[in-house]
Computed example of a mutant assay.
Amino acid sequence: MTEPALLPAALAEIREGFLELGERDRLQLLLEFAGELPELPARYAAAPALLEKVEECQSPVRAFAEIEDDGVHFYATAPQEAPTTRGFASILAQGLTGLTPQQVLDVPDDYAMTIGLNRAVSPLRLNGMTGMLTRAKRQVREQLASRA
């Protein structure tokens, strides 16, 4: 499992917030994150196909990590009727946005498994969050390569 000290501050704080709660309350916190999924910028809201489909998610989820002048921004859409998926997307949007590309690449692949939801949500849903993170990292690597 990932050591908290190795995580960027925002992701470490999110992780600690979950782990400070009992198992029942962790699911409630995930649902609160679902309500905080940031809106897409206009350029993506008008053309959601610009976002990549996350095949690992049971729900129709699209996501994209973009390197901008102030760091990486992670954008995602997930349906209202898929609150756990929206919660995972929101965690990544809040935790990855503003990081440097290298910090995003350094986020441990098992992050979803470290926030204490293993018994509260299905492994399939945790796999969906891992899929979002994997795509974000690949997209960052591709953008770095295209700038080289």
Rank of each mutant, 00 (worst) to 15 (best):
H73I: 06
G131A: 11
E66K: 10
E81M: 12
P8M: 12
R138Y: 00
R147V: 07
T130W: 13
L144F: 00
A76Q: 03
G95P: 07
R43M: 10
R43C: 07
P48S: 04
L30N: 07
I14Y: 01
T97S: 15
P48V: 08
E81W: 08
T114D: 15
L21Y: 02
E32H: 00
E56W: 07
E52Y: 11
A65E: 03
S122N: 09
Q28P: 00
D25S: 11
A76L: 14
P60T: 10
A136V: 12
R125P: 09
E81R: 14
A49L: 01
K137C: 13
L99A: 04
L50N: 13
L30T: 04
F64W: 09
V140R: 01
C57H: 03
L126H: 02
L50T: 03
P4H: 11
K53M: 13
G71L: 04
R147P: 07
I91N: 05
G87A: 03
A136D: 08
P38T: 10
A42G: 11
M1V: 11
A5G: 12
L37N: 03
L99N: 02
T2A: 15
I67T: 05
A82K: 01
L133M: 10
S146F: 00
E68H: 04
G17W: 02
R138A: 15
T97M: 06
T114W: 08
G35D: 13
Y75F: 12
E3G: 00
L117N: 09
P108T: 00
P48T: 09
D110H: 02
S122K: 03
A93Y: 06
A89E: 02
A46W: 06
V61Q: 02
T97G: 03
L117H: 07
I14S: 10
L11P: 05
T77S: 03
A46L: 14
A148L: 10
R86S: 12
P60W: 10
P79Q: 03
A9T: 14
E23Y: 11
G22E: 11
L37V: 05
F33L: 00
I115G: 11
L51Y: 09
P48C: 05
Q103V: 00
E56C: 08
Q58Y: 12
N118Y: 06
E52R: 14
L126K: 02
L117M: 07
Y111I: 05
M129S: 01
T2M: 10
F74K: 04
L96S: 05
G35V: 09
G35R: 11
R15E: 00
Q58C: 06
Y44W: 14
L30G: 10
N127Q: 14
T130E: 15
A42E: 14
L21A: 02
F88C: 08
R86Q: 06
E32V: 13
Q103L: 00
T114N: 15
L37D: 13
L6K: 13
A76T: 08
V140S: 05
T100W: 01
T130M: 14
P4E: 11
E39W: 00
L19T: 06
N118F: 02
T134W: 11
R15D: 08
D69E: 15
R135Q: 15
L133G: 03
S122T: 09
R43E: 14
L92I: 01
G98V: 09
L11H: 03
A47L: 04
